[in-house]
Amino acid sequence: MTETLADTATVWGWLAEVPDPEIPVISVVDLGIVREVRHEGDTLVVAVTPTYSGCPAVDVIDLEIDAHLRRRGVAKLRLERRLSPPWTTDWLSAEGREKLRAYGIAPPVDGTAGSRVQARAARLSGQPAVTVACPRCGSRATEKVSQHGSTPCKAAYRCTACLEPFDYFKCI
């Protein structure tokens, strides 16, 4: 019996069902880390890129993708780690950003990855380089507590209007 290979569009649909282990409201497809789905002969190849190079979730993500695709009946599968071009927060889908906000994590403000010039300008002017809206009350009266938050991809912020602390998914 010859097995029929699932077409890549179907595989993309399956991958959209795999949640990010640290932020389970978004899928690995929403996060933009799945870079390619292709067939090599009868082997399905999925290329995945890490968000941050030391992200400890990388191995768990590979494991979950592998397990989910096998549950969907994929018999031959290979995961590829792809470094280039490097992941950027611009690859977060619009839907993914909304899901983040609803979950209480402020989505990245595009094009604001730190440059030395921006950082220096912010320091000299006393004004923050980025204005991040509070995901709970929507106020823009927020301040950075620390550039490093609960995971490598997040910074710690607080809202001075509703006084809640929150995570900001920082640009990279």
Binding site: Y52, L83, S84, P86, T88, A113, G114, Q147, H148, I172
Partner: peptide, 10 residues
């Protein structure tokens, strides 16, 4: 280097 530089800027 491209990958690492993004993080080292922070």
């Amino acid at each position: 280097a491209v990958k690492a530089l993004k993080e080292v800027r922070y």
